[in-house]
């Protein structure tokens, strides 16, 4: 028999998945605005961010009410805490999409500096990371969640590689500094999205195993 409480937990989960889908859409649209030099797409990201903010507040409100009214325990308690934390990570992913969209609008005013290679690759990697951890969250796939964590290294490497390349551009021609700095900003936003995916993976492990694995790799 499904309890009313279970239905309320499912509602919170559904809201979180709505947030996840909006956050992914925002990043995808922001990258489209950059790579396809599409100002309309970039503008859409800026206009849509409000929705993510509102959803996060709704989820927090729902979770606080569940804690106050239902006194959740054990897995239920961990689920509610984790839902609030993942909502915060998704909201920040939305903020990174806004950063990318802003950089895109600046970059679109000037001629393209170089073909886009590393940025689309970073985007695909981080998009897959976020998708995978959310899938792991929904279906309790712990191993899948843990496997996402090492992918963050690939994203970091791509960022370093891009920095190096753009630094050489700037050294050669000061005319490229503004565009290079904006591209570095974009790559940094994507790198942060990878970090958010890792944070979500750690929360998924806490949810299903009750074990806090944050900072373990850094401290090891």
């Amino acid at each position: 028999m499904e309890l009313h409480f279970d239905q309320e937990l499912t509602q919170a989960k559904d809201q979180l998945l709505r947030m996840a889908s909006l956050a992914e859409q925002a990043v995808t649209t922001a990258i489209q605005g950059l790579v396809q030099r599409d100002d309309v797409a970039a503008k859409r990201v800026l206009d849509g961010d409000n929705q993510l903010d509102l959803l996060q507040k709704e989820i927090d409100e729902q979770c606080v009410a569940l804690i106050a009214l239902r006194q959740p325990k054990a897995r239920d308690l961990r689920f509610i805490i984790v839902t609030m934390k993942i909502a915060a990570e998704l909201e920040r992913i939305g903020d990174q999409a806004v950063n990318i969209a802003n950089r895109a609008r600046l970059l679109n005013r000037e001629p393209q500096l170089k073909p886009f290679v590393d940025i689309p690759r970073m985007f695909e990697l981080t998009r897959d990371m976020v998708r995978t951890v959310l899938d792991a969250f929904v279906y309790g796939k712990l191993d899948v969640a843990k496997q996402v964590i090492p992918h963050d290294g690939e994203v970091d490497n791509l960022e370093v590689q891009l920095h190096r390349e753009l630094t050489s551009f700037m050294l050669e021609d000061p005319q490229t500094i503004t565009r290079s700095m904006n591209l570095i900003g974009v790559s940094h936003s994507l790198e942060r999205i990878g970090d958010h995916a890792v944070n979500i993976a750690e929360e998924v492990v806490y949810l299903y195993e009750g074990r806090d694995i944050r900072h373990e790799t850094k401290n090891a």
Binding site: A74, D76, L77, G210
Partner: peptide
């Protein structure tokens, strides 16, 4: 531990009211 992360499934079901 019992109320945040019990080891046994029966305990978990009991403390979560299931």
């Amino acid at each position: 531990k019992i109320f945040t992360n019990p080891t046994n499934k029966q305990t978990e079901d009991y403390v979560t009211g299931r």
